[in-house]
Design a protein around this nucleic acid. Structure first.
Lengths: 214, 214
DNA sequence: GTCTATATTGAGATAGAC
DNA sequence: GTCTATCTCAATATAGAC
C-alpha cells in the first residue's frame, strides 16, 4: 500500500518510518525551495538533502508539483496557525495596534527560524505556475482575512494613521517581514533583535498621530 | 565584427539597428526575469518577447548568464542613479528623514514602473548563482553606501528613532519597497497612491518620538 | 521502501545557409 | 543579422531488481 494515503498504524501512528521519511522530504524540499525558488528546485537536490535517492522521493509524491504544492500550502497554513495562536494568547485589553505588532513578530519568527516551509512559502507563492497557484491561494486568502481583520479593527478604533491606505500599509508591512529572509544573517544578530526593531518600526509606522508613546 | 564590442558608428551612434535590437533583448529579458525569477527565465521566452528567434539572442550575448548579469547589474545601477538624482534635486535645507522618504519614493517608482530592469534586479539578485553574484554585488554595494549614508545622517541629526537598529530598519524599509512589485496591481491603484502611502509609512516608521507632524 | 539503470523531454548552445 | 536544423546535456520520471 502506498503511503500517499496513510492508514492508522499498528501502534502509535505518528512515527512510522514512512511518516518520518515523508516529513524529512518535505523539510528538505522547503530548504531547497527557499534558496532556489520554484524553477531552481531540483528533486535530486531535495533527495540528496534528505539522504535518499531520487526514486524514493517518487515513492512518496507522485510529481514534483505535488511535492512543492504541499510544502507551500502547509507553509502558509503553519504561519497562519502560529500567528493566530500568538493573538489568542493575548489579553482582551490589548489594543488593535499592539495586536498587529504581535502578529508581525510571530510572522517574522516563522519566516526566519520557525519553520523552513514558511519562508519557502512566502518566497515562492508568486512564482508558482497557475495549476499550483490555485490550492495555495486558498490558504493565502484565509491568512489574508486574519490580517485584514487586524487592520479593520485598528481603523475602527482610530488607532491607524488615517493618512494611510489600509491595504497599502498592510502589504508594505508584510513585504518588509517577508523580505527579511533574504538578508537576515543569524550571525549578525539574533531573531529577537530584528524582531524588536520590526515591532517598533511597525508600531511607529501605523500609529495615529497624537498617540505617541515616547 | 561582433556587436559585443561596439564601435563608433558612421553617423549618430545611439540608434544603429543592432544597438536597438540589443536594447530590446535586454528589456525583454528584464520582463521575463521579473516574472519567472532566475531559474525560470528561458532564453526562448526572451527571444519571443523581443520578436526574434533564439540564435539571434546569441548573436548579442555569448551566454544566458552574460545576458542575465547585464540585466541585473544595469537594473541596480539605474535605480541607484534615479534615486541619487532625486536626492540631488533637493534643497539643502531638507531634513534627513525627508531625504530618506524621497529616496524611498524614487526607489519604489523604479521598482514598480520606472524600469523593468530595476524590478527584475531587486527580485533576482538573491537567487543568482555565485559566478553571477560577484559583479552584481559591486553595484549593490555602491547603492548600499547611499542608503547607509542617508540613515547615518538621520542618526547624527537625531531624526531617527533611537530605539531602532539603523541597519535593521533600513533593510526592513527596502524590503517593503522591493516586495511591492509582487503584489502591486496597476488596476487597483496608481503608483502615486501607493507611493504616498509608502512615504507616509516610512516617515512614521523612522521618526524620533516628539517630532510629530500631525 | 529504496535502490540502479534507463527512457523521455526540453532547454542551452552551435553550424551553416541566406 | 537572422534564420532553420541540429547537437548536447541535464532533469523529470519510470521499470524492475532487491
Amino acid at each position: 500500500m502506498s503511503p500517499r494515503s496513510p492508514e492508522a498504524p499498528g501502534t502509535a501512528g505518528q512515527d512510522r518510518k514512512s511518516t518520518r521519511t515523508r516529513k524529512r522530504i518535505l523539510e528538505s524540499a522547503a530548504a531547497v525551495l527557499r534558496r532556489r525558488g520554484y524553477d531552481g528546485t531540483r528533486i535530486t537536490e531535495i533527495a540528496e538533502l534528505a539522504e535518499l535517492r531520487l526514486p524514493a522521493v517518487y515513492y512518496y509524491f507522485a510529481t514534483r508539483e505535488e511535492l512543492i504544492s504541499e510544502v507551500v500550502v502547509s507553509g502558509v497554513r503553519a504561519t497562519h496557525e502560529h500567528v493566530a495562536a500568538a493573538l489568542e494568547a493575548l489579553d482582551g485589553s490589548v489594543g488593535a495596534l499592539d495586536r498587529i505588532c504581535v502578529a508581525a513578530t510571530a510572522h517574522l519568527e516563522m519566516v526566519l527560524v520557525g519553520h523552513a516551509r514558511a519562508a519557502a512559502a512566502m518566497r515562492t507563492v508568486s512564482q508558482l505556475p497557475d495549476e499550483l497557484r490555485a490550492p495555495s491561494r486558498v490558504e493565502e486568502a484565509r491568512y489574508g482575512v486574519l490580517w485584514r481583520g487586524l487592520f479593520d479593527d485598528a481603523v475602527a478604533r482610530g488607532e491607524l494613521d488615517p493618512q494611510l491606505d489600509p491595504r497599502g500599509a498592510r502589504m508594505l508591512v508584510l513585504g518588509a517581514l517577508n523580505w527579511a529572509s533574504d538578508w537576515w544573517d543569524p550571525e549578525k544578530g539574533t531573531v529577537e533583535e530584528i524582531a524588536a526593531t520590526a515591532r517598533r518600526l511597525v508600531h511607529n509606522a501605523l500609529r495615529a498621530p497624537g498617540t505617541d508613546h515616547g
